[in-house]
Amino acid sequence: MPQPLNYLKETASQTAGPYVHIGLIPAMAGFDIFEKNFSNVLTTPDTEGERITLEGKVIDGTGTPLRDVLLEIWQANAAGRYNHPADRSAGALQQEFRGWGRAGSDFESGLVTFETIKPGAITDRAGRTCAPHINVWIVARGINIGLNTRLYFSDEEAANAADPVLNLIEQPIRRSTLVAKRSERGGKVVYSFTINLQGPEETVFFDV
């Protein structure tokens, strides 16, 4: 017998369940408990960058929007810098922009929205430029382990075409499942997305 390695094993995932809001967004469960709450608004008045609304739905195998899903997003700032010590790229850090938010879908429509800024292009650790993107993590009743995906931006065609992660996707047609579509509504910039859990247009999910 060789020497034992004795690594610990990761704790098994379990579904967030239908009442995930109690713990993570208590106001949606119908009560007020914490002095300070996390939300779907990532910006403060001082945040630098183009203000955008992210708006979308998560769709089940019958084409029905999930109405009890919770999304979290994690993103770089407008200079392409993550607010975390492991990002050693040159972009300027904005200490007050955490770059993270969470949102529950509307209990009737299933719509999920975030108010944030468009992130800048990111320089990865190998020095490559990556197209601007937002990392998304999805949990809900019936989802046994959180799903990781990304949102890219429809007005970044050239950057998307060169992005090393999008280019890992074998079928070009599937790359479009990660691209949020830009529009303007009442003077606001809106990026719309659809996350399909199943079907011919199933979104690309990552084993990160």
Binding site: T15, D60, G61, T62, L66, A140, R141, G142, I143, N144, L147, V165, L168, I169, L197, Q198, E202, T203, V204, F205, F206, D207, V208
Partner: peptide, 14 residues
């Protein structure tokens, strides 16, 4: 509940 909410394609390893 997992039946209609589970991706069927392979996850893309990143």
């Amino acid at each position: 509940s997992s039946v209609l909410r589970s991706p069927r394609q392979s996850l893309l390893s990143l």
